[in-house]
């Protein structure tokens, strides 16, 4: 087990996303964990080790933006890559203003996804603490 692998967590209520994205992330060379809801993520041990959060916008219960606000509240500066199946591009500006590294619209290309995760793991992308 090498120390270098960054932990990328995926929070999405959609099972197919939870199945496919970790495979991709591991191929890209990251460690990956998945959670079906924001609440589950907040309750997990990985909360503190997460270096990048791939977060679905629309979920039952706490939504992606809600989790973003909650993390901010807890002063946990985890870079977030939002993914959304909602085709409405108007949500992107507010998410970006809230400190997101990227907002990808499903379906997104693998390249775009990899670039976004890499960008998130750059030291500069860490949000203000």
């Amino acid at each position: 087990m090498t120390v270098a692998k960054s932990l990328v967590c995926v929070v999405d209520d959609d099972e197919s996303v939870r199945e496919s994205l970790p495979d991709m992330l591991r191929k890209f060379g990251f460690a990956a964990e998945v959670f079906p809801s924001a609440e589950d993520f907040l309750a997990s041990e990985q909360l503190g080790q997460t270096q990048c959060l791939v977060l679905d916008v629309a979920m039952p219960g706490m939504s992606g933006p809600d989790l973003q606000a909650e993390l901010h509240q807890r002063r946990l500066a985890i870079p977030i890559v939002f993914i959304t199946a909602n085709g409405d591009a108007s949500v992107r500006p507010s998410l970006m203003r809230g400190g997101a590294v990227e907002c990808l619209f499903k379906p997104f290309s693998l390249t775009a996804f990899r670039d976004a995760v890499h960008a998130a793991l750059q030291p500069t992308s860490r949000g203000p603490s």
Binding site: D14, S16, S20, D23, M24, I83, A85, G87, F108
Partner: peptide
């Protein structure tokens, strides 16, 4: 929005899985 969501969701899965 819902329709787009419903369609985009599996599409994302398809692309991701095919890529993997």
């Amino acid at each position: 929005a819902s329709i787009a969501h419903e369609v985009n969701q599996p599409l994302a899965g398809i692309i991701n899985n095919a890529g993997a």
